[in-house]
Amino acid sequence: MIRHRWRPSARALAGLALAALLALGVQLVAAPSASADPSAATWLKLRMCESSNRYTVNTGNGYYGAYQFDLPTWRSVGGQGRPDLATPAEQDYRALYLYRMRGWQPWECAGMLGLRNDSDGRSKRVPGYADSAYIGGRVPAPVPVGKPAWPGVVYAYGDCAEALKTFQLRMNAFGYGFTGTGCYYDKTRQAVLDLQRANGINDSGRLGPKTWKAAWEGKPPR
């Protein structure tokens, strides 16, 4: 009777190799997992909600700059002076630093926007300036006086964009009282619907080219 020779499985071979390495005193170190920071678009949404993307804002309420730092929080991540006097790149860096220390918790707008921590949130990994360069913060251009060109995007509930800020500020001419967050929520949707109904546009609640044009050239909504 021929006996079948035992052949070790791949798992058994791996176990034997591991045991041999450990016997030789070789330390096995797991490779660090890939990390991820919030996208530039996510940071823009946060800035729009917090400060209308204004890096130099100081309303006198104790919160400063695009990310609305208070001074103790700013200093806790190494910030010097006042946030609104720092460059956009410096504010972006300190915001990423804070995010890696505490996640989205410090920002009230993060909860309003439904933002969730990713693998770097609260990781305690101190970033370098190169890590925050992708955020790309800059001081926004002034809102045009005349009718601005259609931005080429149909906006809907939950969107945030510079063009939405322009639309909101335009609607203040009709008494809406927007602060210019640039984010499309209930108040913006109501303004869009009012404008559409006043101008015979299908009241979809979406800000498309006809509604955009009506904001400057159509009948007032009220």
Rank of each mutant, 00 (worst) to 15 (best):
D203I: 04
P209N: 11
L22P: 04
Y64V: 05
R54K: 12
L24Q: 12
P220W: 09
F167N: 01
P209H: 01
F69Q: 02
A14E: 13
K45D: 05
Y64Q: 01
N199G: 13
A161Y: 07
A156S: 14
L96Q: 05
D84P: 03
G152A: 01
R3G: 01
P142R: 15
F167I: 02
N117V: 08
V26M: 14
R102E: 15
L115Y: 06
A23Q: 07
Q168W: 12
L113C: 07
W104Y: 06
G136H: 04
R125Y: 12
S39Y: 10
C49L: 11
A156M: 06
G65S: 11
K147S: 15
R54F: 05
C109F: 08
N58E: 03
T166M: 03
A17L: 10
V77E: 13
C160V: 03
E217K: 03
P127Y: 08
Q80M: 12
Y129F: 13
G111I: 02
A89W: 10
E108F: 07
F174D: 01
S132K: 06
G200W: 09
S132N: 08
K124G: 11
G182S: 06
P127W: 05
R75Y: 07
H4C: 07
A19L: 15
Q80F: 04
N199Y: 05
N172Q: 10
Y55D: 04
D159L: 00
A86R: 04
P32W: 14
L169A: 05
A20V: 09
G146Y: 06
A214S: 15
G208F: 00
K187P: 06
V29Q: 14
D131G: 06
F167C: 02
R82W: 11
R125S: 13
K45F: 02
G81F: 10
W107C: 04
T73G: 06
M112I: 09
D70L: 01
D70I: 09
A215Y: 09
A133I: 01
G146C: 11
L85N: 02
K165G: 03
R138P: 01
K219Y: 05
I2Y: 05
A110H: 10
A20H: 04
P140C: 13
G152Q: 05
G62Y: 08
I135Y: 14
A41T: 10
Y97R: 04
V29I: 11
D70N: 14
A17E: 08
N61E: 11
P221C: 11
K219S: 08
G177K: 00
P83C: 12
E90M: 08
Y185M: 05
K124E: 11
L46Y: 02
S33K: 12
I135V: 11
S132E: 09
D70K: 06
H4Y: 02
L193Q: 00
C109Y: 03
P151M: 07
S119W: 06
